[in-house]
């Protein structure tokens, strides 16, 4: 994997995690409003709950990553291991940024 390719992967992971969290929370909130539920409260709850799912979705499933970790640790491929950690970190950052944006939307409550 080249350096440029890796950066694209990082950005893609970040955006996917961000989009999953933002989109899920916003559309969920819209659905809550249509069903006479509190929209902001639902939005906050969804943002918190979707954070971990956004991470998983951005990584494209857990097993591949875990396998890479395993190979990295046992096979002492520190470079691969670091790359995967960076990808996970980017996914986490994207999900958390989405969470923070959602929280800021209802912060006047």
């Amino acid at each position: 994997m080249g350096k440029e390719n890796f950066l694209v992967t990082l950005l893609l992971t970040f955006c996917v995690a961000l989009g999953v969290n933002l989109g899920g929370s916003l559309l969920g909130s819209l659905g809550a409003a249509l069903l006479n539920r509190p929209p902001l409260k639902t939005m906050h709850e969804l943002a918190a709950e979707l954070k971990i799912w956004a991470l998983v979705a951005a990584l494209g499933g857990t097993f591949g990553v875990i396998r890479t970790f395993e190979a990295g640790v046992l096979g002492r491929h520190i470079g691969d291991l670091t790359r995967q950690l960076l990808v996970v970190g980017c996914a986490f950052l994207g999900a958390h940024l989405g969470y923070l944006i959602i929280m800021s939307l209802g912060s006047h409550r």
């Binding site: 916003l26 909130s29 819209l30 409003a33 006479n36 539920r37 509190p38 929209p39 902001l40 409260k41 939005m43 939307l105 209802g106 006047h108 409550r109």
Partner: peptide, 14 residues
């Protein structure tokens, strides 16, 4: 539109 009115909807709900 939903985001614009969400706060008011929330207040109505509570």
């Amino acid at each position: 539109v939903h985001l614009f009115h969400a706060a008011r909807l929330e207040k109505i709900y509570w």
